[in-house]
């Protein structure tokens, strides 16, 4: 019989044993529960409530209705918005994960060899991470500016190359946006991967070396399997973060040209703050929540069982 099974059930405030009094955890947890409920749960409940109304920011009491769900989910532009969101999220997550892992490997290897510049690399990446999204968008807008004096195109001209329509070509603009988001978010992945790499038992590498494994074999048969839980957790976090990203896009492209870069979070923002449709915005928020939770569950299914526990 486990210890948990024999533990007496605690009354709300105080548990009294035969010889001693065991304090109940609930009074200590109440502040956290209250804060969580007030600042996290209440807004979520409100979003669900608004989704079942026809409320707008323009006044009026609003009425409870189910029609908002139908109206929003049947909008013809929603499919394109979801596709744009998928491309943006997949591109950003893959880019951040791969480059973050590569940078972490470089940093760990450099540290082992005491190479100069490791700290500079780490710090540079972290600086990009702490830049606010709006500012990041403005920085990249200047770089992608297609005017004759634009940043990247000026560089390309200097190298004798043709300028690129970074933001005005509907086929290119999404990758420009992904690039700016990867630039900003890679540091987070690098930090997570760096911590996970440091936690790998060195004896595994020693054993691999004894077996005559090459560097490539050590990466694929030791490092990556050991990093699997960290990679999955990191992907859950950056997927949710990317799905919620709109500040960098709004300052870089505003969602355009047309709807070429209008992701779901930006569309939700536009519906609420430009169309003043609070109820429709709430339905879209729930849709984002469902997508985030769904993806998190998919990732979690790949976690080793003991990691999930």
């Amino acid at each position: 019989m486990s210890a948990r099974a024999v533990r007496p059930k605690l009354p709300f405030l105080w548990a009294t044993g035969r010889h001693n009094r065991v304090p109940s955890p609930y009074p200590w947890l109440m502040p956290v529960i209250l804060v969580m409920g007030l600042f996290y749960l209440y807004p979520v409940v409100d979003v669900f409530r608004y989704a079942f109304t026809d409320l707008t920011l323009l006044g009026g009491e609003g009425h409870y209705t189910l029609s908002t769900f139908g109206n929003v989910l049947m909008r013809p532009e929603l499919l394109q918005i979801l596709w744009v969101t998928f491309v943006f999220t997949a591109g950003s997550v893959l880019g951040q994960q791969v480059i973050g892992l590569a940078m972490a490997l470089v940093v760990v290897r450099s540290e082992k060899r005491h190479l100069f510049g490791t700290t500079i690399l780490r710090t540079t990446a972290l600086i990009a991470w702490v830049v606010p999204g709006i500012a990041g968008g403005i920085i990249w807008k200047m770089l992608f500016n297609e005017a004759p004096f634009g940043g990247l195109n000026s560089l390309l001209r200097l190298l004798g190359m043709a300028p690129v329509q970074w933001l005005s070509d509907p086929d290119v603009v999404m990758w420009s946006v992904v690039l700016s988001n990867v630039w900003r978010g890679t540091a987070f992945s690098m930090v997570v991967m760096y911590a996970a790499l440091k936690a790998i038992d060195p004896s595994l590498y020693e054993a691999a070396e004894v077996d005559g494994a090459s560097a490539r074999q050590k990466l694929f048969f030791v490092t990556l399997p050991q990093l699997r839980p960290a990679i999955l957790v990191n992907m859950i976090l950056i997927t949710i973060q990317t799905l919620n990203t709109f500040d960098a896009i709004i300052s870089l492209t505003g969602g355009g040209p047309g709807r070429a870069t209008e992701v779901l979070s930006l569309y939700t923002f536009n519906v609420v703050f430009r169309n003043y449709d609070l109820a429709a915005g709430s339905v879209l928020s729930i849709l984002m929540l469902v997508i985030s939770l769904g993806l998190a569950l998919v990732y979690a299914a790949f976690l080793p069982k003991d990691e999930k526990a």
């Binding site: 323009l58 005005s168 509907p170 355009g256 040209p257 047309g258 709807r259 070429a260 536009n270 169309n275």
Partner: peptide, 23 residues
């Protein structure tokens, strides 16, 4: 009128598609 912000929004979207040749 109340609908003007949405008219403006749709003109912006339309203009982007037209100017880039997407539609």
């Amino acid at each position: 009128v109340l609908i003007y912000p949405e008219i403006s929004n749709q003109i912006q979207i339309m203009m982007g598609k037209v100017l880039t040749g997407a539609a």
